[in-house]
């Protein structure tokens, strides 16, 4: 696999935002803000970190990804299309009656490993996968992405205990810490802090990064496991709605579709971001 440069990844992130916003606009439904906060993480995982391709997908012997925060499926579908799992034209069917590209991940879509959507499920499944790979002595890793709001589900903490108990250093848990959930700030709905300390206490080796910064994500994820004999926890501080000024940090955009005018503005902001990126590297 040829390793894409940081700049290529940054360009992809802009294009992914364009694609996922177009999907949501066309379908007139979708989880806009969470997809924008997490898409940089997925970009780095699929293009730089994980050994998962359409060619090896049917084999267990490869890296694995479970998206526990299933509502950010638009980001996942966008990245999988770019990775060649299916033609990008399939994204036009998103949320259409009878399409497999529904509002949460399902295995009917090639590249999706597990059906999610109900929160607090992905980590247990990822722990099972990581344990199974360890039992077979496989060197491959399991990655899972959790939302911060979903951490109120107790099953996450059951699974965390198991991950530490079985010393699953082939497991990397990434938390999309955008501080918002559908009702408002996580700290007002159900306080999570001190979150890094909680994860440390549960037995993870913890690192914190800016989860919308490609170089920081690459550096951190290339460094897993963070400690031998421990599961890795990457607390990725992100901005919900990242990349579109009027969507950033506004709870109402959790599941909100841009108007025609907002969509035009969003695309123009992305054009500017792309121009700035190209200018910076000229």
């Amino acid at each position: 696999m040829n390793t894409p440069s940081i700049r290529t990844l940054q360009q992809k992130s802009v294009q992914y935002r364009r694609t996922l916003l177009s999907m949501i606009k066309r379908a007139n439904t979708g989880h806009t803000a969470g997809s924008l906060s997490s898409v940089d993480i997925l970009n780095v995982l699929y293009n730089r970190i994980m050994d998962v391709t359409p060619a090896n997908f049917d084999d267990v012997v490869r890296d694995h990804y479970i998206q526990s925060k299933g509502h950010s499926v638009e980001a996942l579908f966008t990245v999988l299309a770019d990775a060649g799992f299916y033609p990008a034209a399939e994204l036009d069917t998103f949320s259409r009656g009878g399409s497999h590209w529904v509002g949460h991940p399902t295995r009917k879509v090639r590249g999706v490993e597990h059906n999610t959507g109900a929160l607090g499920h992905g980590l247990s499944v990822a722990v099972g996968l990581a344990l199974g790979m360890k039992k077979d002595g496989l060197p491959h890793r399991v990655f899972t992405l959790l939302g911060d709001g979903e951490l109120a589900e107790g099953s996450n903490w059951e699974a965390s205990m198991t991950a530490a108990h079985y010393k699953l250093d082939n497991l990397t848990v990434i938390v999309d810490r955008n501080d918002l959930q559908i009702t408002g700030l996580t700290e007002e709905v159900m306080a999570l802090e001190p979150l890094a300390d909680k994860f440390r206490a549960f037995g993870y080796a913890v690192r914190e990064v800016n989860g919308n910064d490609i170089p920081e994500l690459v550096e951190a994820l290339e460094g897993v496991p963070f400690a031998a004999g421990k599961p890795s926890l990457l607390l990725a501080h992100t901005v919900k709605g990242r990349g579109i000024s009027f969507i950033e940090n506004v709870a109402a955009w959790h599941h909100h579709v841009p108007s025609d005018e907002e969509f035009r503005l969003a695309l123009s902001e992305l054009d500017q971001a792309e121009a700035a990126l190209n200018g910076a590297h000229r």
Partner: peptide
């Protein structure tokens, strides 16, 4: 931890 039991069982099955 029965919720975890079933999720882990699914993950182990995914691992073959």
């Amino acid at each position: 931890a029965e919720q975890n039991l079933v999720g882990i069982a699914a993950g182990l099955t995914a691992a073959g």
